[in-house]
Amino acid sequence: MRLQYPSSIKIIRVPCTGKVDVLHILRAFEKGADGVYAVGCLEGSCQFNNGNIRARKRIEQAQKILDTVGVGGERVQMYNLSSGEGTHFAEFAVEMEERIQKLGPNPVKLNKKEKAA
């Protein structure tokens, strides 16, 4: 397929999106990530029954927390696709990158930098 997607995206492989926890997402922001998204299998086709449903709920939880602490819940997103949908994978990456470009850098990262300067 040789599809292109933005180079700013760092992929972290997990055995199932059900492995992704709220804590992983928050720590990513603490460490300076501008956005985090999880790409899981289509709902209803999880090998582990409900891993992707759990991931969605955790993403929603993380969104609420990030809204509360002023980072912005819209920086976190859940996407679903089947393993044969490489084009969707690239589309989601572009969509997320555009979304984050609009939102600008993670305020936590900016404040840390300011503090260090």
Partner: peptide, 21 residues
Amino acid sequence: KKEVGILASALRMYFLNKGNE
């Protein structure tokens, strides 16, 4: 332990954003 981690992380980010690390 997990909830402690989540709360601590959220609070650290909140206060850092408020310029009060």
